[in-house]
Amino acid sequence: MFIDQLTLYPYLQQALVASILVGIICGVIGCFIILRGMALMGDAISHAVLPGVVISYMIGASFFLGAVVTGVLTALAIGYISQNSRIKEDSAIGIMFTAMFALGVVMITSLKGTRFDLWHILFGNVLAVSRNDLLITVGIGIFVLLAIVIFYRPLLLSTFDETMAKASGLPVKFIHYMLMLLLSLVTVASLQTVGIILVVAMLITPGATAYLLTDRFPVMLMLSALIGTISAITGLYFSVIYDVASGASIVLAASILFLLAFFFSPKQGIVVRMFRTPA
C-alpha cells in the first residue's frame, strides 16, 4: 500500500526525500554535538528559531532565512553571556532558549486575524513539504555535508582535544561558531519534517545510537546517518499507513532503534553484558 501511494503521489515522494535528507544531516551533525557535550545547545537553537519564523511570516519572507538569523544570533548571545559574566554556559543556554521561545509564542498570539499554523511549526508536517521547501532542504544538506568534509580534521581535533587544537593554532572559536551555524541550518532544514520541538531528538538520538555501536568516529558518522535515514523512512511509513503525526512517528522510530542498541549492542548492550558477566 505504501509503495503504491509513493508511486502515485508526488507530495509523498517529496516527503520521503526530505525525510531522508533530514535524517542524514541530523545524524551527521548530531555526532559532533554529542561528543562535544552540546545536546542542550541543540535544544536551545531549535527553540530559538521560532521568533525568526514568525517575523519572516509577518514580512512575507522565507522562514528559512529568519530561522537561520535568530538561531545564529542566539548562539552568539549564549557565548557572549557565558564569557562576560559569572553565568555558566548551561545557564546561559537555559535563559536564552526559553526567552526566545517565549518571544516567539507571544508574537504568534499577537497575530490576530491571520492564519499561522503553530502546530506544523512545532511538530512538523513532512507531507506538506513543497517543491521549494525540498530544494532548500537539498541545498542546506549539500552545504552542511560539504562543510563537514572540508573542515573535518579541525572539527575532529577540536571535538576530541580542544587544548591540543588551540596549541596547534586552530581557530577554536571560529570552529565552534561555524558548528553553531551548521546546527542552525540543520534545524531550519528539519522544521517541516519534525518541527521545532522534536528536531533535537533527531539531532541526538541517531548519534547516540551509533555511539553505542562503535568506537570509531568515522564509522559513527556513517552509522548515525544510516540510523537517521531508517528512522525517517520507517516513521513516514507508519505516518501514512496509520494517519498519525509524521514528525512524532519519525522520532519514535529513532527512539526504538536507540533502545535496541541500548539493550542489544554487541559491546555496550545491557542484555549482552548481563550474559557476559560471570556468575
Rank of each mutant, 00 (worst) to 15 (best):
T159A: 10
T137I: 15
D133A: 10
S85Q: 08
L236N: 07
S19C: 08
K112E: 11
S239E: 06
F143E: 06
M58Q: 12
A253P: 14
Q5Y: 15
R153M: 07
V194G: 04
V69A: 10
Y57L: 09
M220V: 08
G139V: 11
S246E: 00
T277C: 07
S46M: 09
L223Y: 06
D215H: 14
A92R: 00
N125R: 06
F258N: 09
G113M: 04
A210V: 05
L170Y: 14
L260Q: 04
T159S: 11
V199L: 12
I93R: 00
S62P: 02
I250V: 15
L260H: 05
V172M: 11
P218W: 06
T7N: 13
L65G: 02
L257D: 00
C31A: 13
S184F: 07
L65I: 15
T114N: 10
L236M: 09
E162F: 00
L183H: 01
L221G: 01
F97L: 08
A77F: 10
G79V: 01
I148A: 05
A39D: 07
L12P: 03
I233C: 09
F258Q: 14
G195P: 10
I25Q: 01
I136C: 09
T209S: 14
S239A: 15
A147W: 08
M100R: 06
I3F: 15
G235V: 08
G141V: 05
L65S: 07
A225H: 08
Q192C: 03
F101A: 03
L35A: 08
I121M: 13
D215V: 15
D215R: 15
Q5M: 14
P218L: 09
S184I: 02
I45V: 15
G269T: 07
L260K: 06
A18Q: 02
M100D: 01
I150P: 10
L183T: 11
V244C: 09
S249R: 01
V200C: 04
L213K: 13
F116C: 04
G169T: 12
L111Q: 13
A75C: 11
S82P: 11
M274A: 12
L156C: 03
L146W: 12
S130I: 04
M220C: 11
L257A: 15
G66N: 08
V172H: 05
V194H: 03
K166D: 09
V144F: 01
V272C: 05
D43W: 06
